[in-house]
Design a protein around this nucleic acid. Structure first.
Lengths: 236, 236
DNA sequence: TGATCTTTTGTACGATAGTACAAATCACAT
DNA sequence: ATGTGATTTGTACTATCGTACAAAAGATCA
């Protein structure tokens, strides 16, 4: 309330634009896009509703800007980690490094803008569930490259697994990742307090371990077909 | 338009109440709760908005009734399949049967009411992402029993894995399951048309295969700790 | 047929949504 | 200090939301 703003900041508050972005990110990530009003965001940011319109024009524009802020840094970090992972000699270690390169940036900040990539990843999870049109467009054109690079890298480590299977399994990975960020309390509840769903480090290790094993599972075509439907075919 | 309604059906339409339920289920599952208005639902069902209020009192009441309709049959079916799975002799086969008992009812109809449990499962996925309060209450008190039974059964098949790890991995399973139903097109897109994300049979087989392998992964504590953070620790 | 109950319709009300816009306020160069 | 451009505020407009409620319509049975 007292400090003099730098010459770059012409606003009254240190940076109202950033405050609005942070508030919107938090509210969207926890309540979804439609449940949050522009007024909610303004209030959480200590701003006036009109100020949101001034900076971002529309509510969609606000969401768009949130994506613009994070997508670049996050994918850049993923690329770096993936490149490093590809250079790992040992095949088992390499696969784990690749998986880690995909997962870690989703938890730790994809950028250092607001202090947590987990929040943005959760936002993406919620937007994808809501079928948000703005998010869908951005994701398809921004994340598909990264996803393909990831899938290719995994495929190189596991040449005997059909690409189709790897796509499915990486899809499962993303779903598990999203869900862990969306409903962490469920883990704490079901484990009766023995595990903390909100602990990012645990989530990452558990996710890496489980995912590596899933990728290494035998290919579907090669799995003994006689074994399947041993049960669970009663009357569906 | 011509047939005489049975004595049980006093309504003009064969069953307007069911039509509203089906429409709401579909719309909520694809667009989320908040994005769909009562008027949207009424129009999709060919009903009057006031008719929704008459049958379900409030919008929340409508959602509540959808859950009431499906939860019972779905969990019943899961229990049956789980009981059968527990009787499987071979340990590997048993684990697969257990996993299948959890997954299959989520795709095939949990009830035969409206022709697809997948739609209801997708609805649950979306509600959990939106943090819907009504859904949260119902889920915690209706699905936790089933989840615990499932976790216990898996734990019995894999006694050397800590329960905590099993909770995490079953959490990942649910996330993968949800995401497969929420964004099936992403699978088709990333596999460049080689896989069909909307094919329930494929999704089930892929999910079973990957999940069984994930459950069978070594326990986290037992995993060689030296191997971890081989990469991906640059500066986070 | 007429009485009665259930269901559907039509309309309306208050609340809140997103957004536009003019006035007020600020930081800052001159 | 003063003018100027950037930002914030306050307010208002229209649309749509969930819901209530009375009237209309249909079904059921004496």
């Amino acid at each position: 309330m007292v400090r003099k703003p730098t010459s770059k900041e012409t606003a009254r508050k240190p940076n109202m634009r950033e405050a609005i972005l942070a508030a919107a990110e938090e509210l969207f990530a926890t309540n979804g896009f439609n449940a949050v009003s522009v007024r909610d965001i303004a209030q959480a940011a200590g701003a006036n509703p009109g100020s949101v319109t001034y900076h971002f024009k529309t509510k969609d524009g606000l969401l768009l800007e949130i994506y613009r802020r994070h997508c670049g840094p996050m994918n850049l970090r993923r690329s770096e980690l993936l490149a490093a992972a590809r250079r790992v000699r040992d095949l088992q270690d390499r696969l784990e490094a690749i998986v880690r390169a995909y997962i870690v940036p989703a938890f730790t900040s994809g950028s250092d803008l607001t202090g947590g990539g987990a929040r943005f990843t959760r936002l993406r999870a919620v937007m994808s569930a809501e079928g948000n049109e703005v998010a869908r467009r951005i994701i398809a054109q921004t994340f598909d490259d990264t996803s393909h690079a990831f899938i290719d890298a995994v495929h190189e480590s596991l040449p005997h697994i059909p690409r189709t299977d790897i796509v499915w399994r990486s899809h499962f990975l993303l779903g598990a990742l999203y869900y862990s960020l969306v409903t962490p309390d469920r883990v704490s509840r079901l484990s009766r307090g023995e595990a903390d769903g909100n602990d990012a480090a645990s989530a990452i290790e558990q996710l890496v371990q489980a995912t590596v094993a899933a990728f290494q599972a035998p290919a579907l075509d090669q799995a003994a077909p006689a074994r399947r439907r041993a049960v669970a075919s009663s009357k569906t």
